[in-house]
Amino acid sequence: MLRIRCPWCGERDETEFRYRGDASQSRPAADAGLAAFSAYVYERKNPRGWHLEWWLHVGGCRRLLKLVRHTLTHEIRVVGTAQDQPSLPQEPGR
């Protein structure tokens, strides 16, 4: 079970949140073309390690959060707001 420290609500169970996917993807410009949009919708890295993620706190403040989570250890290093730009840690997760 993940416990996510929402910057607005405090630490909450994972069950209050809706996972909204890879936050390293940003939506291409309107005229970027089919390939760019195809990559945006379908292509994912599935890393073994640190991952940037969207989580929507539907059971609380309904704010969108940006998480840095380790896919192997589940360690959550950063819980930021939607506009934060956290960098992924270089070291392996604990």
């Binding site: 609500c9 405090g10 909450r12 069950t15 209050e16 059971g59 609380g60 403040c61």
Partner: peptide, 10 residues
Amino acid sequence: ACATIMVQVP
């Protein structure tokens, strides 16, 4: 005050 989920409802 807080908002949360109880028995599956907000």
